[in-house]
């Protein structure tokens, strides 16, 4: 669980089965374990109407078989979040009311899948989320607007313009990223040491 610091900092819960006609799960890495845990309390036959989209990342094959054992109506395994997103948008574009969305794994996955769901007209409060695994952040540099994925340090270097950024808790749901602000604008020779804090 992440602590609530400022209002825009997302807070995540624990996945739980919702009433609905179809259930769409999007998870990366350890996020699979959140689905497997939820499956223990799901009513019989729940996954017969489910579609699981999974990006294993560093977990390799560890979770693939256990997820398939849930016998979802559809199972998709993708090499990266970026490659799963077009498929997610396509699924949402043709979906009907009664579809429930469950997101689990890293904040980057949850944020980007959430962004696609919001664009499809789903209210963010009706989406189930659970954070698992790495705490790495997706950060947008407020200066060049470039997005840096998998940021684990504070401060962090912008992968686009090279500025040294203070990673804030200020979060944009619209762009699914935390805000990064230049930490040494007054004196660029000042170089605070990087600490690995988002693990």
């Amino acid at each position: 669980m992440t602590a609530k610091t400022i209002l825009s900092r997302p807070v995540y819960g624990t996945l739980s089965p919702q009433p609905g006609k179809h259930h769409l799960f999007i998870a990366d890495a350890e996020g699979a374990a959140a689905i497997l845990d939820m499956a223990n309390s799901a009513p019989a036959g729940f996954f017969a109407d489910a579609h699981i989209m999974f990006v294993p990342g560093a977990t390799g094959t560890k979770y693939v078989e256990p997820l398939k054992k849930l016998q979802p109506a559809q199972f998709y395994e993708g090499p990266s979040i970026a490659s799963a997103l077009p498929r997610l948008r396509q699924t949402l574009a043709t979906a009907h009311m009664g579809l429930r969305v469950y997101l689990s794994g890293t904040e980057g996955l949850i944020g980007q899948a959430m962004q696609a769901a919001l664009e499809a007209g789903i209210d963010h409060t009706s989406i189930q989320t659970e954070q698992r695994g790495s705490l790495a952040r997706r950060v947008q540099c407020v200066h060049c607007k470039g997005i840096t994925e998998n940021v684990t340090t504070q401060p962090a270097t912008c992968s686009h313009c090279g500025l040294l950024l203070l990673v804030r808790d200020h979060y944009s749901r619209r762009i699914a990223a935390f805000q990064g602000v230049c930490i040494n604008a007054e004196d660029p020779t000042e170089n605070p040491p990087k600490e690995e804090i988002f693990r």
Binding site: P19, K21, H22, H96, M97, R100, A120, I122
Partner: peptide, 29 residues
């Protein structure tokens, strides 16, 4: 069950009808 994602539902009428529609909608997710 045939409404596109992003649809909102509005109900106005007798109490019994409102309850029926709300219950059915909540069961349908």
């Amino acid at each position: 069950s045939s409404q596109p994602l992003g649809t909102h539902l509005y109900i106005c009428g007798p109490a019994g009808m409102i309850d029926w529609v709300r219950r059915t909608a909540s069961e349908a997710g």
